[in-house]
Amino acid sequence: MKFFFVFFIYVPFVYSELHTFMTTYTGINGQTFEGIPEFSAVTTLDGQQIDYYDSEIKKLIPRQDWMKYYAATDGWKVDSEIREQVQNIYKNNIQVLINRFNQTRGVHTYQRMYGCEWDNETEDSHGFDWYGYDGEDYVSLDLKELRYIAAVAQGIITIMKWDNNRAQLQLLQQYYRHECVDWLKKFLTMRKVDSERRAPEVSLLQKDPSSPVVCHATGFYPSAVTITWVRNGQEHHENVEVEEKLPNEDGTFQKTVILNVHPDDWKKDQFVCVVEHKGKTIRKILTEDKIKSNRNNWKMNQHFCVAEHKEKTIQ
């Protein structure tokens, strides 16, 4: 597996029975661009960022609204402290690797990606724990054989040391088999409970008086939604454009249906945007005072789990 150096992770929310829970630590040594921290930590659930930490802000930040409930617990403070500890360890580890690879200058990165996958249909799960250096694989943990594998010759010294700690390896095996999956399920439940409360927010939008009128529904979950334009009590399909449903970063969805109609027509006849979601109906009657229009700058809105073991130092 190739290791790719990343800072920000965004994958559109998709329906899948396979769920992934992953934490990525990234340490950097050398001159970097302004605004790029020397250490960052990102946790994702099904590809969506749920928390973030870096060496400049020096605190753990929830990236989803539903994570704020967890952020209010004592566990959040512990997680923040762990990030600070890992930050200091990474500073040392990068320097060890620079010497091991006989490098004297340049920007170098050390990264770890670990977590687990769980299939909620079969209940199958597996853990993963990968380390990379300068964008390439360095070492990885084989949980079946319960040993580390070196991807490069420089990693042999590391795996010899880590493989000798059998008690630590067994703790990791238990963690990836049970605790990691338990955290994954917990956060899935928190996300689901929060999302089930999400009814669509419906707005009528128009760039200027001569532009089409957009019926925009956003922030709803689950994704099934029906949006129709009704003219004088009858469904209206003429000059109506239905846009593709899109995911929002918080796991909810948005959808737009555009009505191309002259203002004289919708002022003479009654046009209503009807949004149906989870058995509930929202109606927006098209009138001038109901339209949201920002004509100068109009835009459409287009656990964390820490493995309960100490981050290892490289020697």
Rank of each mutant, 00 (worst) to 15 (best):
W76L: 03
I57R: 02
G35Q: 04
P37V: 06
N29Y: 10
A167W: 15
Y114C: 07
E196K: 05
F187P: 00
L172E: 01
E34R: 07
R83Y: 13
D269N: 10
L60S: 01
L45Q: 02
I61E: 14
V86R: 10
F7M: 14
E243V: 13
Q48G: 05
S40N: 13
I149H: 03
Q234G: 12
E288F: 06
L45Y: 05
E56V: 15
L286H: 03
K280G: 13
C116K: 02
T43D: 07
N99S: 14
K185S: 04
S80V: 10
Y133Q: 01
E244R: 08
E145D: 09
P62K: 00
F128L: 06
H309L: 12
N92C: 14
I291G: 02
F3Q: 11
Y138E: 10
K185G: 02
F101K: 03
V242H: 11
F8N: 08
D182M: 07
H178F: 11
R295S: 14
G219N: 05
F304K: 11
F101T: 07
G27M: 02
M1R: 11
K312A: 14
Q315W: 15
R177A: 04
Q87P: 02
Y70L: 06
M22T: 05
Y133R: 02
V225N: 00
D163T: 06
V306C: 09
F8E: 04
S125P: 14
A307K: 12
T218A: 14
S211C: 08
N260W: 05
N297R: 11
G251F: 03
I36M: 07
I159E: 01
Q31F: 11
I157L: 15
K312V: 14
I149F: 00
N120P: 00
E34C: 13
Y148R: 00
K58Q: 09
I28P: 01
V96F: 11
I61D: 05
E243M: 05
D269R: 02
I50G: 06
E235K: 04
A307M: 06
E136L: 13
F5H: 08
E81W: 09
H309F: 13
E311Q: 13
L141E: 01
G115E: 01
F3A: 10
F5R: 13
V230C: 10
